[in-house]
């Protein structure tokens, strides 16, 4: 068996330019730059800005956003800033009394209270001391969960809840980490893609790819983890392909949402799953995806 060997020159990596999708241009502010001169009482200082000598200055690199009097500068990339109601994928980092600490790529670990999970045996069950002792049996360090942001504490850390059958412990699948800013916010973050893969696009940049889930509501509490089930090779291959497609899109700084991922999957079919990891293939897939997305946009505007 001869194996295909790929050779790339060092200069090839610099030939690839980021893909520009829009002609729109904004004024870009960089740290220390004056956003508004002599901003006295007419403006309210928002995120990414600070006041010095009466001027409102930017503290991050990004574009200005104004809501009435509130002026803020939003960086294009940062740690995850949670908002109530967003869907997250996280990893349990610590088990404490009455709560779990969850790593969610935000600046402080998030908290999942024992009182904000659905324990097996009905929603209205009283939580006893035994439950506190049993916590590690439900979720232990290293377990992955999907959850929703319930509230934000005063220090900025997030309080999560899994009080829905959609949320809970994640079983077999793949986790990808991308920059949170690349995940497009939408109403639906749980997707069953047409080629037999289900996907959770966490707002925090953690993306979970798993075999198709049947939407039967008989799983209780979301603490069951079926590791015995054998996933067929086709599905595993599709999952691997989705992973590589998402990486290709993320590498080229393209927004991740169901349509872009489906398009990327379809465009990637001419490559084998392993070939998709080559930079050329990644750029090619991203370009074709972007082309299709832009055609979709044009169509919508007509």
């Amino acid at each position: 068996m001869s194996q295909k060997i790929h050779i790339r020159t060092a200069s090839a990596s610099s030939r690839v330019r980021p893909l520009a999708t829009t002609e729109k241009s904004y004024k870009i502010f960089t740290p220390g730059e004056v956003v508004i001169k002599e901003a006295n009482t007419n403006f309210v200082r928002g995120h990414g800005t600070y006041e010095e000598n009466g001027d409102l200055k930017a503290s991050v690199a990004g574009v200005k956003e104004q809501v009435n009097k509130l002026i803020s500068v939003r960086p294009l990339k940062s740690r995850y800033n949670g908002q109530v109601g967003e869907v997250l994928v996280g990893r349990i980092s610590e088990v404490q009394q009455k709560r779990w600490k969850v790593d969610t790529n935000s600046r402080l670990d998030s908290v999942l209270m024992l009182s904000s999970v659905n324990l097996p045996g009905g929603e209205l069950r009283r939580r006893s001391v035994e439950d506190q002792h049993m916590m590690r049996q439900y979720l232990q360090e290293g377990d992955l969960i999907s959850a929703e942001v319930q509230s934000i504490f005063s220090d900025g850390s997030l309080s999560l809840h899994t009080r829905s059958l959609r949320y809970g412990k994640l079983g077999q699948g793949l986790l990808i980490k991308v920059f949170p800013s690349l995940v497009k916010k939408s109403k639906i973050h749980f997707h069953n893609l047409p080629f037999g893969v289900s996907l959770i696009l966490g707002n925090n940049g953690y993306i979970w790819i798993s075999p198709p889930t049947d939407n039967t509501d008989d799983n209780v509490g979301g603490f069951v983890q079926n590791l015995e089930e054998v996933i067929s090779k086709d599905i595993r291959e599709a999952m691997g392909r989705v992973r590589n497609c998402i990486l290709a899109l993320a590498e080229n700084k393209m927004m991740l949402f169901d349509t872009s991922i489906v398009f990327a999957y379809e465009e990637s079919l001419k490559y084998s799953v392993a070939e998709l990891l080559l930079p050329e293939a990644m750029v090619d897939v991203a370009l074709l995806t972007q082309h299709r997305l832009s055609m979709l946009d044009d169509y919508e505007f007509e």
Binding site: P18, T21, T30, M254
Partner: peptide, 18 residues
């Protein structure tokens, strides 16, 4: 500035509202 412009145009300035 160049970097932000490139990043922004490839994501389509999706995170900017104004």
């Amino acid at each position: 500035k160049n970097h932000v412009r490139e990043m922004g145009s490839s994501t389509g300035w999706a995170n900017t509202t104004s």
